[in-house]
Amino acid sequence: MINLLLLPAFTLILIVFIIPIIRYGWISLHSFSLATNLSLIPNQFANWDRLLNDSRFWVDIYQTTRFAFVSVFLEIILAMIIALTLNKHFNNRGIIRTISLLPWALPTTIMALGWRWIFNAPYGPIEQLIRILGLAELNILSNPNFTWIATVIADVWKTTPFIAIILLAGLQTIPKDLYEAFKLEGGTYFDSFKEITLPLLKPYISLSIIFRLAQAFGVFDLIQVITSGGPAGSTESIALYAYLNAMRFLDFGYSSTIMVASFILLILLILVINLSIYSGKKILSTIKL
């Protein structure tokens, strides 16, 4: 029996999450586009068949995964450094903490426009800097081999503060005593990071990884603004492809298929990560200090 107290939360999840996914799954088994006068006509697995053979979809999956993994990896490392710094006592710590959160508070479209300008050639600041250094033009937004890195940089800039705050919250749950006791035992700063901070921060790190991977996997506005998926489709994400199919091509059947497929892939990905992080260890006992 469902606990009555859980009912409101469960209903909410049902309405905003489960029902839409089920509906997308149902639509994905239909033709639903301009060609069918925007009415649903069952077509068995034709959309899924098309998806499996759609190289653009698989390229986008690869590009999205690459974007997500590299972004989240860099974000975790940078956020850890920032959190460790902010966890120290220094003057005006409150102000600096707030300022460091600013990138995260900015609307994505606005900050993405900013990055598009920064990377812009030949007038953007990065190109100017490269010219001052006497190097050749970089043209990062024009080179299909490297443009994705620009989108990663923008994403890292925006989201690192968010992870830093999660990790900072985690750091603050670790009693100072532990570090002092360890110091008396002869542990260096590096030792205590390895033996105390990292293991005790693990729940927070894995929370950040899973949360951010799921978010990065659905990246849309950032890429739409900076590159529109170009050049040569090299930065197109799954969400962008699904969006194009729905809003530009009015092919809702195929768009739903893309969304459901990427949802399934994301769930699988998170399951794998979960298993690898928590394998064999009773994580709950570390959370309940």
Binding site: P175, D177, A181, F182, G187, I196, P199, S285
Partner: peptide
């Protein structure tokens, strides 16, 4: 320590060994 400052992620044996190890 007042709080004992035991390492919550380590068992009794590991708690004792950690200092000797480092």
């Amino acid at each position: 320590f007042q709080s004992y400052a035991l390492f919550p992620h380590l068992n009794v044996l590991e708690n004792l060994k950690l200092g000797l190890k480092v």
